[in-house]
Write a protein that binds this DNA or RNA. Structure first.
Length: 617
DNA sequence: AGGCGCTGTCATGTC
DNA sequence: ACGACATGACAGCGC
């Protein structure tokens, strides 16, 4: 209950989001108030109404088929499985072509189209609306019956209840011509109700009513008298969401199956017997309505329906796109893409084309929001009026003849050139407004670097084209000097053309040179960085070596000092006294002799040292 | 809006 | 002297 009324508070105020909003909310919005305020909702309801009419028509057809199968099997074409048209009493619709004529059928068949493909959807809808006002009302009423109180449709009491439910509503339904007709149709209607009860969609409706049973009781709900109200249950079935139990509690399903066992088997027989069901749906549902999302049990059940219960998108009946692709499969695909990206496919049962033909090739090529113009092309269009013509053509009054130019350019043998430039040539032609009105033929590239270079090159190409230079720009730039001169000599070019060719060649070569220069510069930078790194590593190594050497030196000095003192400690003078290191020092000559030298008296070091050492030894 | 990087182009110098 | 090439400087463009 709460989730039913919640959407009312969330009534969308954004008109732009109406469609999506309604599609996604209608499954929970069971109240009638919303439709009162929601115009789009009412539109949707109209479509549902129409659909219900068609559904009713199908049910009638099925009924007739069953009768026919029992009474007139001769009409069944054993080879094709189709019923052969029977010329008798009533001109029945081609899908089933039955012979049994009931009052209801008579009223139907009077105006019902012969399944003519030439009949437009709107016409069919109009015809159905005119033909089955009562059926619509009856079905609305039935859809609103509380399944808890709805007995077995096969019982006679069911009819009583149904009719009693229907009758109070009819007089108030100004749109319905109905009561008298309904009474006349009573026997057939009972059978029709049996069929109706077996429809999965009705089951969904009843499921919803179980959630709010009183809301659709025909005697108590004012919405019953409103022809618009019936669409909510149906919508609910279409948008149950990922969790089917949200829409159809298991407890109710069980109860429902017990009460209406026929409903739970949504009749594969219908698919078999009604051989033209799909064609019928294709005829009368050329609209994306077939592709509203659904899931869970609703999905499975309605899948068996094979398109008899198309879903309800809020779309205009026929827009440009609909006219473009008129088949329901196309509409189905479109709708699947638009309305249910995350849901499993909507089934509606109409044989869906599972192969994704997302968009037409034209759309994939051009439909990028840019109307076929790439940024570079737009830029070129902006450039066009200025550079080439103003610089050369206007100056020399040259007429541009792209075909001639192209022919000439193609006649000249090409030397190897970058793909980039090769790809640009057709684009250049496209950029000429006089040539094709700016329509792009090639795919839309987003490589801006490439585009930029293309734009740059296109300037010279445009200039060359403007002056009718009979060579390709890449040739002008990349030919060796001798070949280039030979080429120039072969063609009689005027001064402007020669100047342009020279400029093109100069610019092209300078461009390459600049690229090479920058490349070298970058390589130099990289090389210098690498060299810098190497030098840093070398510096670290040298510093490490230096520190190691220093530590080694210090260690050796310390060892020397220790040894020095040890030697001194062992030296004695004549009196047996030690020499003071502060007064004497040990010195070693080149020949290995060691002398004890007084620090203050170095003049006669020689003898005394030798003496001392000798004495020391 | 300004900075930054990329690219084309021009001017100039060198070979 | 001329052409090719190299390079600094500048402008345009896109991010």
């Amino acid at each position: 209950m709460t989730d039913i009324q919640a959407p009312e508070t969330q009534h969308p105020s954004q008109q732009a989001m109406e469609l999506i909003d309604i599609l996604w909310r209608q499954d929970v919005d069971l109240g009638a108030r919303r439709e009162v305020f929601d115009y789009s909702h009412r539109q949707k309801e109209h479509e549902l109404q129409r659909r219900r009419e068609q559904e009713e028509e199908k049910k009638q057809q099925r009924l007739r088929e069953e009768e026919k199968a029992l009474l007139a099997q001769l009409q069944l074409d054993e080879e094709t499985g189709e019923y052969i048209p029977r010329p008798l009493p009533s001109a029945l619709p081609p899908p089933t072509k039955q012979s049994t004529v009931t009052p209801l059928e008579a009223t139907q068949n009077v105006n019902f189209p012969e399944g003519d493909d030439s009949m437009s959807f709107d016409e069919c809808m109009q015809l159905l609306a005119e033909t089955f006002p009562l059926v619509e009302t009856v079905e609305h009423t039935s859809a609103c019956l509380d399944p808890a109180v709805a007995p077995d449709p096969s019982s006679s009491s069911s009819n009583h209840i149904l009719m009693s439910a229907k009758e109070p509503a009819l007089p108030q339904d100004s749109l319905s011509p109905a009561p008298v007709i309904a009474d006349q149709r009573a026997p057939e209607m009972e059978q029709a109700w049996m069929e109706l009860w077996s429809l999965p969609e009705l089951q969904h409706c009843l499921n919803l009513q179980m959630e709010e049973p009183t809301a659709y009781l025909p005697t108590s709900s004012p919405e019953v008298q409103d022809g618009n109200y019936t669409f909510y249950p149906m919508s609910k079935s279409t948008n149950v969401g990922p969790n089917p139990e949200d829409a159809c509690p298991p407890t109710f399903i069980n109860t429902f199956e017990e009460v209406f066992p026929d409903m739970v088997t949504p009749e594969p027989m219908m698919v078999n017997s009604n051989l033209d069901a799909e064609g019928f749906c294709e005829t009368f549902y050329p609209d994306p309505v077939l592709c509203a999302p659904e899931s869970g049990e609703a999905h499975v059940m309605e899948h068996k329906e094979s398109g008899t219960l198309p879903e309800l998108p809020k779309k205009p009946p026929l827009n440009t796109m609909d006219l473009h692709s008129h088949s329901p499969r196309d509409a189905l695909e479109r709708c699947k893409q638009e309305a249910m990206p995350e849901l499993p496919d909507s089934d509606s049962g109409i044989s869906q084309n599972t192969s994704p033909h997302a968009s037409s090739p034209e759309k994939s090529v051009y439909g990028d929001g840019s109307f076929g113009f790439s940024d570079s092309e737009v830029e070129e269009l902006d450039i066009n009026p200025g550079s080439a013509e103003s610089d050369y053509s206007e100056m020399f009054s040259l007429n541009f003849q792209p075909d001639d130019f192209q022919q000439n350019a193609l006649m000249v043998p090409h030397t190897g050139q970058s793909d980039q430039q090769q790809d640009k040539k057709p684009k250049q032609h496209k950029s000429k407004p006089a040539e094709d009105g700016g329509q792009s033929d090639g795919p839309f590239t987003k490589d801006k670097q490439k585009r930029r270079s293309e734009v740059r090159l296109s300037r010279d190409e445009q200039r060359a084209r403007a002056l009718q230079i009979p060579f390709a720009v890449d040739m002008i730039i990349n030919l060796p000097v001798d070949d280039f001169n030979e080429l120039m000599s072969k063609h009689q070019l005027n001064e402007a053309q020669l100047a342009l060719v020279r400029d093109i060649r100069r610019r092209g070569k300078n461009k390459v040179a600049a690229q090479n220069c920058r490349k070298r510069k970058m390589e130099n930078i990289v090389g210098l960085e690498y060299e810098l790194d190497s030098l840093k590593e070398e510096k670290e190594l040298l510093q490490k070596e230096k520190s190691q050497t220093g530590s080694s030196l210090r260690k050796m000095k310390q060892q020397l000092s220790t040894l020095y003192l040890e030697v001194f400690s062992m030296l004695r003078d004549e009196e047996g006294k030690r020499y003071s290191p502060s007064d004497y020092s040990l010195q070693q000559t080149t020949d290995g002799s060691v002398f004890l030298v007084p620090r203050t008296k170095k003049t006669h070091v020689g003898k005394s040292k030798e003496h001392k050492l000798a004495s020391a030894d």
